[in-house]
């Protein structure tokens, strides 16, 4: 299995805020990898840095996609190379219809027939989107918007898909459904990098996991190993932890990780 993306020692700043502090990892083609971490750990920042969405960043480090360096490339170019990103908070085009949102997802494609076929396939995944086809995306429910955001990202036929907290704000049932779809997408050959708070679900479908704290990876391994790891169990899976003392315990443990 070959490496599709490799990130080597990147550092990202928001002006003076040092958000990503030397992060390295690589993704194997065809696998699902997950990044877990608490709020503000820098998960989204890593994805945005790779997508070239933060001006003049990364400050240091190298990002390679299929062996080609992509640091400081325009986002449009990176998308064209085959990476697609479903951003945190969906970011659908609120005053475009569901259909137009999907068409924008296929902006770089010229094959009309193929585009229509892919839209049909998406409607098979998410029948509700077909029903809402002519409705403004902003009028969809949060869950429907998430489905649309994922679908839209798939319309560019990416080789690599980034998902930033797809489960955020969704009912448990819907989360399950979305994760099933993610698995399906992966089975069709798309490599996936999944950023999540829902560690249980994420490790359930991912092959490997990385754990991020304050801009650094503190742990990585196969999902199986991580699920057995005491720290992970305690902080991310909520095992053996009483709610009232969680905050205190977490802080102590975190220190021992560094």
């Amino acid at each position: 299995m070959s490496e599709i993306l490799s990130v080597h020692n990147i550092e990202t700043y928001y002006d003076l805020i040092y958000a990503v502090r030397g992060v390295s990892f690589s993704l194997t083609e065809g696998e699902i990898t997950t990044i877990l971490g608490t709020n503000g750990a820098g998960k989204s920042t890593i994805l945005k840095t790779i997508m070239g969405l933060i001006d003049d960043q990364p400050e240091k480090g190298v990002i390679q996609f299929e062996g080609k360096k992509i640091n400081h490339k325009d986002t449009e170019k990176i998308v064209k190379m085959g990476i697609s990103y479903v951003p945190e908070g969906r970011q659908v085009f609120e005053e475009l219809t569901v259909m137009e949102n999907l068409q924008m997802g296929a902006y770089l494609r010229r094959d009309r027939g193929g585009i229509n076929k892919d839209i049909q396939r998406i409607y098979d995944y998410f029948p509700i989107l077909k029903e809402r086809e002519k409705q403004w995306a902003g009028t969809l429910s949060g869950g429907e918007q998430q489905m649309l955001a994922i679908s839209r990202a798939l319309m560019s036929k990416p080789k690599l898909l980034f998902l930033d907290e797809p489960s955020l704000g969704l009912s448990p049932l819907l989360v399950k459904e979305i994760f099933e779809i993610i698995k399906l997408i992966n089975q069709e050959g798309v490599t996936i990098l999944l950023v999540e708070q829902n560690a249980n679900m994420a490790l359930g479908i991912a092959k490997k996991g990385l754990i991020l704290e304050s801009g650094r990876f503190v742990l990585n391994g196969s999902s199986k190993e991580l699920l057995k790891n005491k720290d992970v169990q305690e902080f991310y899976l909520g095992i053996k932890t009483e709610v009232a003392t969680k905050g205190y315990q977490r802080w102590k443990r975190k220190k021992s990780w560094r």
């Binding site: 969405l53 325009d74 986002t75 449009e76 064209k80 951003p87």
Partner: peptide, 16 residues
């Protein structure tokens, strides 16, 4: 219209 509504998302669609 997409660029106006959400420039970041527009870039992510590959729109220059």
């Amino acid at each position: 219209k997409a660029v106006q509504q959400n420039p970041m998302a527009a870039k992510l669609m590959g729109i220059s």
